[in-house]
Amino acid sequence: MTIDLVRTACALALAASALGATACDSRPDHVIARRASGELPRTDPLSSAWDGLPEHEAPLVAQNVIEPHLTEASVTKIRVRALHDGRWIAFRLEWEDATDDHNVTTTVFSDAAAVQLPRTREARPTIMMGNDGTPVDILFFRAAWQTADNMGELYPNMPPIHHPPEAAAEGPARQEMERHYQAGVGAQNPTVVRPDGASVLAFSAEGYGTLSPPEGGYAATGRGVHRDGRWYVVLAREIGEAASSPVAPGRSVVAFAVWNGSNGEVGSRKNRSEWIELEIQGGGS
């Protein structure tokens, strides 16, 4: 109890500090998810519900095992808080990034973050996105996915262009045309056709290069806010079947990755953590 109080005080001090740079010796050495007393802030990374929670600080390293590599880590640490309500679990990630990169061109990529969990609580897949027969679940946030009008922002002076789909009346006819004129839409690419324009998507993987929509699926949501040179991102998912879920109350592991878009980071060019112990507490906070 005493220790918890110290942690809480420390986290409060951090939350109060604009830069959040104060060192805090009594941070927990693993990620702790408390049970939320009120509503779970599934899409609000700045909700007061995050205040005072234990915060783990995880070191990140450059991914330099799988080609292509990131040669040097651009984000070296990430702070993580977590909450659950018995049905959903939410991770609040915070890291330093001077630029808010939320559009993608060939010049710059989108800032992004991911939370990786084993498929089942006991499984210990490799950190490199799991392996054959031992899958991982991945929650993936991309800032570009929450940008309403990427093209308008990127090319504000583009003259109006009449694209063929616009010839069709709004509704099914237009949608049909859009499938023809946007191959990613026609192919139902999960990163293109996102449910309600979601900014956090649920994936699974069995090894690097295999990121795909999870079999059976699990619901995911979240949102990111870039403020004063830092990203605050919440990534949330359904807990699912308590007996097998890696995020039901008990102990499991979790890993994180962060991409700095303006540093050309995308795909395997990322900053990543190791597996970190994840403690999901059952009682109220």
Partner: peptide
């Protein structure tokens, strides 16, 4: 692929993101 093709004949579609 955009980086890897020396003839630069793969293009990124910023609207769809692929």
């Amino acid at each position: 692929c955009v980086r890897g093709c020396p003839y630069k004949k793969v293009f990124f579609n910023p609207h769809t993101g692929v």
